[in-house]
């Protein structure tokens, strides 16, 4: 076990997988000479050479499609799309091709491809560079969409993604890259399609993924102290397939749920979770399921506006308290907080 950042865990895993399998190679804009826009691939051009660390032209559709074609012939490309916003330029290749090729040809061709890309707002990057649009890919059968929130998961899920024979969209997050955590030394791939209960509790279920799973863990610790609440936290980890069972089993126990997400509310990932709870735990609910999501605006540049648009820990705490208040299950002294 070592302590390292999410960035380091990704970097080390990519390196070890390239040493393990000569068919694994990297493609993307500025991943070589520039070391990657977020330095995940730092030093790898020197170590592996231009054949396996390929700086591409600014042509997301072209190079993502080329990676899919190379995967069809059995290579295992790991593509970096600089941010998830730019993946829209490759949408046809990802949705109409990567996700379809196995089924459309009756199982004759596999696409063992990983697309690594960070989402995330809060960096004052404005409307076109702050989106969380993983939903677009999680909507599509044929895609696998992974969203690790910890350095340990960054490693185990990257191992799983590279060794899987299907196209995987691997969602990273700008504000997670510097977070630290324990990472096992062994190379044990995660099981794709499984959520994790990252904190056991009985009062309410708090559900998130990627940055919001990190926020959820923080909020749970904070409210344990301030509100004497015993919160169960679920990190979704896999957005497609979605582990509905783990969500429903938790809510059957806690009788209440708050979902927190970095994407927009309407039609968002949280809507699917809420529908899942409605279907699987309707009789167990004490309160309506609450969702905390981004304000439905193009992300503004100016700091106060951006901060207002993004879900904060206070927003999450408020939603939890309101949910429990509504059914008389608040535990801390009334009148102390809003």
């Amino acid at each position: 076990m070592s302590i390292m950042t999410y960035r380091q865990a990704l970097h080390d895993t990519l390196r070890s997988e390239m040493h393990r399998d000569p068919d694994v190679f990297l493609m993307g804009e500025e991943i070589g000479l520039f070391d990657g826009a977020y330095k995940i691939t730092a030093g790898m051009l020197d170590e592996f050479g231009e054949k396996r660390v390929r700086d591409t032209a600014i042509a997301e559709e072209g190079f993502t499609g080329a990676a899919i074609g190379a995967a069809m012939l059995g290579l295992r490309p790991v593509v970096e799309i600089m941010t998830i916003n730019f993946s829209l330029l490759a949408l046809d290749q990802i949705v109409n091709h990567a996700a379809k090729i196995y089924g459309m040809f009756g199982g004759q061709a596999r696409v063992p491809l990983v697309i690594r890309t960070p989402g995330g707002g809060g960096q004052q990057l404005g409307a076109t560079h702050s989106q969380n649009i993983e939903l677009f890919y999680a909507f599509v059968p044929g895609m696998k969409v992974l969203a690790p929130s910890t350095p340990a998961d960054a490693k185990s899920m990257m191992l799983a993604a590279i060794r899987d024979d299907d196209p995987v969209l691997f969602l990273e997050n700008l504000s997670l890259y510097n977070t630290k955590g324990e990472v096992p030394d062994d190379d044990i791939p995660a099981e794709i399609g499984k959520a994790a209960v990252t904190r056991r509790g009985s009062d309410i279920t708090l559900i998130g993924y990627s940055r919001m799973a990190y926020v959820a863990a923080q909020v749970a610790e904070q409210l344990a102290e301030s509100d004497w609440l015993d919160i169960e936290v679920i990190d979704l980890r896999s957005l497609r397939p979605l582990d509905r069972e783990t969500i429903v089993e938790s809510v059957k126990k806690t009788h209440a749920a708050v979902i927190i997400e970095d994407d927009w509310l309407t039609y968002g990932i949280g809507a699917e979770i809420a529908a899942t709870i409605s279907d699987g735990a309707f009789d167990y609910l004490d309160a309506p399921v609450r969702r905390v999501a981004m304000a439905e605006v193009p992300m503004p540049y100016s700091k106060p506006l951006e901060t207002a648009a993004l879900p904060s820990t206070d927003d999450v705490i408020h939603a939890i308290r309101q949910t429990l208040d509504a059914v008389g299950r608040r535990r801390y002294p009334m009148g102390e907080k809003s």
Partner: peptide, 15 residues
């Protein structure tokens, strides 16, 4: 749609 894929197949051959 086939053009980037075919280009990638050529990349695999070259690789």
């Amino acid at each position: 749609g086939q053009i980037p894929l075919a280009t990638g197949a050529a990349l695999a051959i070259d690789y």
